[in-house]
């Protein structure tokens, strides 16, 4: 029996060392170590030996078993190394410098991408998003905002009037909103301060189209009313938001302006990113682009929505979203944003 054991060991080892694939190795393993493998069968016979011979033969059987197992393990490692080497060679045969195969995903419009960022930034300072109608009344679009009929500032917001035939609407009373500020009155009259809201949306004006003007354009209106809102808060908010959106290094400046629904009135200019301030057709050669008109909400507006202007103050602003998008991506024409050309879309 001892001879038999040694014979098995020698056969197994020499067989194993010649094997170069895992499958055969596995078969050989079963052939010797499996439930009815050669070695297993011999080991079973040990029980039949005289009692005094058993320890000696048993020890030898264990040694043989270990030797076979070790050889298998070593050979497995060798096979793995060989395979790796081979695949390395195979890799060298294909031209890996050819670009990968990209999954077919689409592109979100640049306006959406910027708007998502705008919403995120304002979320960090407690603003909620609201959405309202584009078909708007003269009251919310103008009158509640301290712009009575016949006010000369209406000239700066030439209005698209809707056909009132077949309806009971008085001509001129229902329009396409010219500004998302129309949502100030709608929201404030329904809620007590504090309120922090942004309202993204489309606006319409009777305007001749050029590189920096469109008859349909997007704004993000925003306003905040509380017991102690200050002009410095407005400056700080504008500065924070625009730097988060456009980068820490942008250049901003503030100027006085007049909108009947704010007092003091503020205009925000950003250095033109299309020309880096050198002057181009997009910024009308000024090097600066108007980006975020704003101001402290006029007491007449607060009164009109039922707030006490001696107890609460607030600020409001409108981000020119279409313009922000074009400035962020250095697009030199607003009309690119409504162009469905996939050669444009695929860049974003």
């Amino acid at each position: 029996m001892e001879e038999e054991l040694i014979q098995i060991k020698n056969t197994a080892v020499s067989l194993i060392l010649d094997i170069l694939d895992r499958k055969t190795l596995e078969e050989v393993k079963l052939q010797f170590l499996g439930r009815s493998g050669k070695l297993t069968l011999v080991i079973k016979e040990i029980a039949k030996l005289p009692k005094e011979d058993r320890p000696e033969v048993g020890r030898l059987a264990n040694e043989v078993k270990k030797a076979i197992e070790d050889t298998i393990a070593n050979q497995e490692l060798r096979i793995r190394q060989l395979t790796d080497q081979e695949s390395g060679e195979r890799k060298e045969k294909i031209d890996t410098s050819v670009p990968g195969i990209k999954p077919d995903i689409g592109h979100l419009h640049p306006m959406t991408q910027v708007l998502m960022d705008v919403v995120d930034v304002f979320k960090t300072i407690g603003f909620q998003v609201a959405d309202g109608p584009e078909i708007e009344t003269d009251y919310y679009n103008f009158e509640v905002l301290n712009i009575p009929k016949d006010h000369p500032s209406r000239d700066t917001q030439q209005t698209l009037f809707l056909d009132t035939r077949k309806s009971k609407v008085v001509p001129g009373e229902v329009i396409l909103r010219t500004q998302t500020s129309a949502m100030q009155g709608r929201i404030m009259e329904k809620i007590k301060p504090p309120v922090r809201a942004i309202v993204p949306g489309k606006n319409f004006r009777y305007e001749q189209v050029d590189a920096s003007h469109g008859f349909e354009f997007w704004q993000v209106e925003g306003f905040l009313v509380d017991t102690s809102v200050r002009l410095t808060d407005l400056f700080g908010t504008i500065d924070y938001v625009l730097r988060k959106l456009m980068g820490e290094g942008i250049k901003l400046k503030f100027a006085t302006t007049n909108f009947p629904f704010v007092e003091p009135g503020v205009d925000t200019y950003i250095q033109c990113t299309v020309c880096n301030g050198r002057g181009c057709s997009f910024c009308k050669q000024s090097g600066w682009s108007e980006i975020m008109p704003a101001g402290m909400i006029h007491p007449n507006v607060l009164k009109a929505v039922g707030y006490d202007s001696q107890k609460v103050t607030g600020f409001a602003f409108a981000i020119g979203l279409s313009r922000l998008v074009t400035l962020r991506y250095q697009m030199d024409d607003l009309r690119l944003l409504t162009n469905p050309d996939m050669r444009i879309l695929e860049q974003f």
Binding site: A130, I187, P194, G236, K253
Partner: peptide, 22 residues
């Protein structure tokens, strides 16, 4: 205006949904 310091608004944050919430 460009001589003003800049601050961030203090005050209450409402968790109630605003009208026209989206």
């Amino acid at each position: 205006y460009n001589n003003f310091p800049k601050t961030i608004p203090i005050g209450q944050l409402s968790t109630k949904k605003i009208p026209y919430f989206k």
